[in-house]
Design a protein around this nucleic acid. Structure first.
Lengths: 103, 103
DNA sequence: ACGAATCGTAAGTAATGACTTACCGTAAGT
DNA sequence: ACTTACGGTAAGTCATTACTTACGATTCGT
């Protein structure tokens, strides 16, 4: 259901960089934006898109906000691609079979 | 390597519709465009994007061109999401562990 | 209590991309 | 050969979106 938003969110290269920075664990906004070429508000906007897509979770911690990858959101997208892969393989095998038969 | 283009290509809803139409097997451009709301040239442009992303293969058949899902391209994207999922789970477990220890 | 730090939001701008119509090339049918 | 069908490409338009600066709200340190 929500995988459409997830794939749209991951389509942006900057957002994939952000996701990659969170692979090792949660980070605050400043830590994510630090070293990136774009401004911190831009990072905030990307974080919002990723959160809305279900790919990130936010846990306020005092003054800061820790963002972390939400495994469930990633899994939704995985499932979509798995079903697509299954169908692609089936269609591929069937086409090969048809071709062999028609030959 | 090419999964970036693949995810960008799949981010568009219209292109996902096209992909869905090809789940059962190869189709010609006219057959894909038939019943869709957009014009046939627009479909051609989408097919080009999907092909360049490695998600589709083209096999000219006489007058027409048959497009089919390329399992390999889908698999590249799957691998990216699998690695992302693994890291997300690890980070999640570690964060839970830290929390339990800190408690 | 006051200044500094952290972060989200608003408004405006620039760039990206999806779509249309028009056109051209190639293959099939008669 | 001539017409019809099929499909890719070009040019132009419109909407989306990613970015900036400016600002406001909340929390920490002293």
């Amino acid at each position: 259901m929500t995988y459409q938003h997830a794939i749209t969110a991951l389509a942006d290269p900057t957002r994939r960089v952000i996701i990659d920075r969170l692979r090792d664990g949660p980070l605050a906004v400043g830590a994510i934006a630090n070293g990136m070429e774009i401004s911190r508000p831009a990072v905030s906007q990307h974080l919002r898109v990723l959160s809305d897509a279900g790919l990130l979770t936010v846990t306020p911690s005092g003054n800061r906000r820790l963002y972390a990858i939400a495994p469930e959101g990633v899994d939704d997208l995985r499932k979509y691609l798995d079903s697509l892969w299954d169908d692609a393989l089936s269609a591929f095998a069937r086409a090969a079979h048809e071709k062999a038969k028609g030959q």
